[in-house]
Design a protein around this nucleic acid. Structure first.
Lengths: 127, 127
DNA sequence: CTGCATGCAAAAACTTTGCACCGCC
DNA sequence: GGCGGTGCAAAGTTTTTGCATGCAG
């Protein structure tokens, strides 16, 4: 049974209002302005819980700590190898790739996570 | 300038002979049989170096520590959500998705990493 | 010899957890 | 009131790094 908590709501609201895929640390510092007493442990617990129940997404980019996305809907992410920023990306016509991947595979594919990488617009401009 | 080292060769050979995508710790323990004095730091340094120069791949699955794949060629991976195993997966016809993703994106997409997830054949059988 | 690579160990970075107290239901 | 959530801090896990020494070029 999931009990209401102001802290968890604040975390969801915080994430819903940002599109830069903050880390747990960034969420912590942000929430702290409203709840000066919140602890990093609580932030981690709630981020973990929310991503487990599918209300947010956890992004393990392989560069630095995990990041979190307040948008639970399936979409894609772009990681800039130069500045490390993580951007949302909407790519149409990729729904079929689970089916494609299941060809010749004995298990059951439920979904996929894709990270595109390269150079973001800003880094492209300044190079 | 990259200098030859027996340790690095051993790590490459070790990875080339396995298909279970071991963690740094597993590589360390494996190499230790041949080089009892190798240190975990050296393993991390070389895994990081080798993945930087593209001779191996680093897999950040988001579950537990990073894993490493001795096959540098582009291919896909499947992560079993039940037992945590990581399997190679060959999926044809996904070369175009970088192009697809670049539509309406101002940056430059150089590649992508995709993790499929679900239930592996063994876990599917036993459930 | 010169400088990158190693071994060792300490430390950093990131995340989880035990416990007593607090507050939702 | 009962039980899950929180704050705090300690500990766990994973990875990086400083430094003296070793070995390839």
């Amino acid at each position: 049974m999931l009990k209401y908590s102001r802290q968890r709501e604040a975390i969801k609201t915080f994430l819903a209002g940002r599109y830069d895929h903050p880390t747990a640390e960034t969420v912590y510092l942000g929430i702290k302005e409203e709840f000066p007493n919140i602890s990093l442990g609580t932030v981690y617990r709630n981020l973990s819980l929310l991503s487990d129940i599918g209300e947010i997404q956890k992004l393990s980019t392989g560069i630095g700590p995990d990041r979190f996305d307040g948008n639970p809907a399936p979409h894609y992410h772009f990681i800039c190898k130069h500045c490390g920023s993580v951007l949302d990306l909407s790519v149409d016509g990729l729904d079929h790739i689970n089916v494609l991947a299941n060809q010749g595979f004995d298990g059951e594919i439920e979904g996929h996570i894709t990270y595109f990488y390269g150079k973001c617009a800003d880094c492209k401009k300044n190079s």
